[in-house]
Every structure is written in C-alpha cells, then in structure tokens.
Nucleic acid binder design. Structure first.
Lengths: 218, 218
DNA sequence: CTGGATCCGCCGCGATACTG
DNA sequence: CAGTATCGCGGCGGATCCAG
C-alpha cells in the first residue's frame, strides 16, 4: 500500500501494518506462536499465496517478524514475532475487545478457527463464583476442542480436549459463545443447536460476564 | 474492502475500520472533535474526495460516526464520533504508542499537522520536576503553534499560542520532538535548524521522557 | 509436502473535474 | 461547502505452476 505520507505516529503505524491481511498475520503469530507458512495459510483462509509471501517479506523488513530455519529433523522455516512485533499485542487486544459485539453476527460463510474463539473467551469470561470448587468444561465448536478450567478465581483457556470434563458444550460457535457469555439462556441455545452435557449450574459460573458486552451492542 | 469472512473479533473489527483511510478519519474526529467535511479533507492530505464521502457513509452505517446538521447561523453539516466510535480511542492510542519510534524518520514529503504532534507529545512527555514552578512553552512547528503548560506535576498540551511563554521552540518537527523527548541535545537540535529562546533549564523538565522511546527503536 | 513464484482479471483507490 | 462523476492504474483475488 502507498504510504500515507503523514508525519503522524498513527499513520506511520498503518504504513507498516495497515495493509490488507497484515494485522491478521500478526494475529496468527501472536495467538499461535511461531508458525510455518502452511500454518499461516490455514489460519488465514482466503489469502492469496503471493500476498502471504509478500506480507511476510514486508513484515520481516519492518522488523516485526523473523524467519528462522528450524533445525533437523523438522528442517522447516518458521515465522515468529520479534519483540517489536510482540508490542503489537495491545493493538490486537483492543481491536478484539472492540470487535466482540460484532461476534453477534456470524455470517454463513464465516471461517471458524478455535484459537480465535479461545482468544475471545479469554477476554470475555470471568469466574463469578471464585470460591466454588474447580470446574473444567470442554467446548466442541470450531476445528478443535477448547478446554476451560476454572479454579482459584482464575480462568485458563487452552486448545485441545479435557480429560474428564464436568460439562461438554457443542454446537454453532455463536450460540456456544452466547450461552457462555450470558446473552442466551440454555433453552434458547439448545433451540439453536447447542448440546449440553453436565450440570447446568456450571454455567452460572460465567453468567453475567456478557452483560457488559450486551450493553455495548448498540 | 471485501470482508475477511472470518468468525474472529479482530477480523470483524477490520471489516469495519480496516479500509484504507478509515482509521485516519476516526483519528481526525477523535483528536479534533466534530469536524466539517472540509476540516477532514485538511486533516487527511491526499485523500480522494469520493473516498472520504464513501468512508463517511460506511462509518455512519456502522454506527461509528453521526452526521448532524449544525443550526443556523453556521448551517453546515458536522461529523462526530458516536459513543461506539469513541470506544476506538484505545486502538488509536496503542497504534500511536507503537508508531512513536517511527517518528524518528520524517520523510521529506510527509504532511505535517500540529494536532498530530500534540497528540504524540501528550503520550510522550512527563514532568520530571513536578515540584518546580509552573512553566509554559510555545512550540512553533507544523501548521499552528502548540502550547505546553507544566504545573502541579501535570502537563497540558493545547493548540494555539501562549500568552507570555517561558520558552519558544521553533524548527522542523522531528528535531523539536527529538529535543523535547531527550533524544537530541540542544546543540544538535540547533544544528538541525531548531531555534530556542528562553532558559535552557526548562528543557530539563522533559529530559529522559524519551529514553523509554529510544530504547524501543530497534 | 512445503514454500513459494507467475500470470491474469478485476475492483478499490488516486487524481481531477465538475455541481447543487 | 459538501459532495458526485469519471477514468486510469495498481493492489488484490484466484488459479496454476514450480523448485527443494
């Protein structure tokens, strides 16, 4: 993209990361750590291969990304954020926070990746009953399961299955999120295709976290 | 721009504000408050008129901007951020912070507006000697003077001239910023075309604020 | 199979002219 | 003052091809 040619910090930032796809590439590296070219393609459905290569070159030139050759036996090239690139996390966090209300509209052709959902949940969820016993929930939505672990007032969200979950939640992402966040009652969520196994009381641990979001939606 | 078609909060944010020029329009409204179409053109040098009109329509449709008809005698249309638009300020702040090191390179054809500089200074400057007596400085760089008022440990930065400043600083923006931020000694700044009137001790009030920035520059 | 490069069609953007 | 109209170009999308 052409430079804005403005002596302004915001414009100069956008000169670096304002191109189409660029911030989403940074998002992938921030959420998933070092990635192979193929991993990035998978996390950026629809990107043209030449664009991904070009953006990675540009980001490398700007000092945001480094390319490193993994040693044998893997022997593949990895892309990783530099410290300067890591400093973009606040920008990503704010953009994610601002975009949370927009998760209310899930377009039929929206691609879905569980690590995007996990990042959103990390911003939204709080344990409303931190004194209760620890609880684990497995989410089955997106391209891989998500593990939620409540305990000691903290919430941990990881990718991957849960050993013996106290509850299992499956269904369309929008409805699963809506239920967790308290915008949807269990009955409504189930009407939208959500299946819930376990003790419904577990959901109360999250309820209300979403009222703050709901208020944001115009 | 085409939608990214990803069920991800960041991607959905960028679907709204990721177009070229869009965030800079929001910047203008955030920094200067309600603006006329002409004010926006002035604050966005180089933007095509049709693009500005189209972006404003889009932003209005997204609930980020409202158009309001000013009552007579002015009788002009004003554009203003909605509350939802105001919530983009954290994004702008982080982008500005991330871009501060890039202010080190001022391209010859970079447009300059004092309100961009004022915003950057607001992020960078701290009063290192809050117990000293109040001090006012007038900056003459960009398209209008900038007033800096130190007192009670707080810094106020406004646009416009200062009544009877304790110091006057004029010259190229990069050097004026560099001096204030402590990356440049007075002698070096003067060699770069900065003129300084007043007590040089005033500069010590700011010195060091920029070491944090300097460290950021790779 | 990974990590690209190349080509082409198209649309978003840039620049300028024009208008109620 | 607040836009609309037009046209040319370059960035992007989509597909295919290629080297290690």
């Amino acid at each position: 993209m052409r430079s804005y040619a403005e002596y302004c910090a915001i414009a100069k930032s956008l000169d670096v990361v304002g191109d189409r796809w660029t911030l989403l590439i940074v998002r992938e590296l921030a959420l998933r750590g070092a990635c192979r070219y193929t991993d990035l393609r998978n996390g950026l459905p629809g990107i043209a291969s030449n664009l991904l290569a070009e953006r990675l070159r540009d980001l490398e030139g700007a000092g945001v990304v480094v390319r490193e050759e993994a040693p044998p036996p893997v022997a593949t090239t990895l892309f990783r954020l530099t410290p300067r690139g890591e400093e973009l996390r606040p920008v990503l966090d704010d953009l994610m926070r601002w975009g949370l209300p927009l998760m209310a509209d899930q377009a039929p052709d929206d691609a879905i990746r569980s690590h995007w959902l996990a990042a959103a949940l990390e911003l939204m969820l709080t344990d409303l009953q931190p004194d209760e016993s620890p609880v684990t929930v497995e989410l089955r939505t997106g391209d891989q399961p998500i593990a939620i672990e409540l305990g000691d007032g903290a919430i941990e969200i990881k990718l991957g299955p849960v050993e013996s979950p106290d509850a299992i939640l499956a269904g369309p992402p929008r409805s699963v999120l809506g239920l967790l966040v308290g915008m949807l009652e269990l009955a409504d969520a189930e009407a939208q295709g959500v299946s819930f196994e376990g003790d419904p009381a577990v959901l109360r641990r999250f309820y209300g976290a979403g009222t703050r979001i709901s208020r944001t939606v115009a």
